[in-house]
Design a protein around this nucleic acid. Structure first.
Length: 232
DNA sequence: TATATGATTGCCT
DNA sequence: GGCAATCATATAG
């Protein structure tokens, strides 16, 4: 049996900060899940920030930005709760996505954990993701890492500042370079460069940033653009 | 390697 | 009825 916690968890104050600072800071940190007698852990290599004045935010429309009043409706209301708690969301009917709530209670914000470099408990991760052929396949996307770490709706609302599921400081000698881009898989708020990732890391998700994807769609639909590319 | 497409469920209009 | 913070698979280059 492992000692618990296996790593010193990041405290609540870490998440009680501006969302984009937290999103950038979490790149390079550990994400740890102590479950089934195993310690599953990886280094975070990709995150995205979502703020309450952002149309891509799930709680968009719940808050009156003038008064700060928030309607208490649905799961998205939890995005305005205590910083450091888990917001887990089902997407496309099949995949769970792990977010951590940021900003002080009453202010909306969250960071989506998009990709990990798997470090510990790889056998258990492969067991949870039989489709994965290589270590790269284990956690290179938000749905994949949730499956590999065993994160589902059961973890929604959990306190992420203590085991079994928590974040931890990286060892001091690993300070990754952090690049930014538009976020992935969204249709609104694509002008914000609120995706943070380790450039050239093989463990980053293969998704295309939404501003690039939108430009590509426009070009494909536009005959002039299609001709230009054909001639290139 | 890059791109296209189907699967599938909860929530909002 | 439409859409969504995705993934696995198939197919072409």
């Amino acid at each position: 049996m492992q000692p618990t916690p296996a790593f010193p968890p990041l405290p609540r104050a870490y998440f009680d900060r501006p969302t984009l600072e937290v999103a950038r800071g979490l790149v390079g940190c550990w994400l740890v899940h102590e479950t089934g007698g195993e310690v599953l852990a990886g280094r975070i290599v990709e995150t995205e920030g979502y703020t309450q004045d952002d149309p891509a935010f799930h709680g968009w429309g719940l808050v009156d930005l003038q008064t700060g009043l928030v309607r208490m409706e649905g799961r998205a209301y939890d995005l305005f709760g205590v910083p450091g708690t888990a917001y887990v969301y089902l997407i496309y009917g099949a995949y769970w996505l792990l977010n951590v709530v940021t900003e002080r209670a009453g202010v909306g914000g969250a960071v989506l954990i998009r990709a990990l470099e798997p470090v510990r408990g790889l056998d258990a991760m492969f067991a949870r993701r039989p489709q994965a052929r290589t270590v790269r396949d284990l956690c290179s996307g938000p749905g994949k890492l949730a499956q590999a770490l065993g994160v589902t709706n059961d973890q929604h609302g959990q306190d992420l500042t203590r085991p079994p599921l928590y974040f931890a400081d990286p060892e001091s000698d690993w300070q990754p370079e952090v690049a930014t881009s538009s976020r992935i898989g969204i249709t609104r708020g694509t002008e914000h460069e609120w995706r943070f990732f380790v450039p050239r890391s093989p463990f980053v998700s293969p998704g295309v940033p939404s501003d690039v994807a939108a430009a590509r769609r426009r070009a494909t639909k536009n005959p002039a653009g299609r001709m230009a590319r054909r001639g290139r």
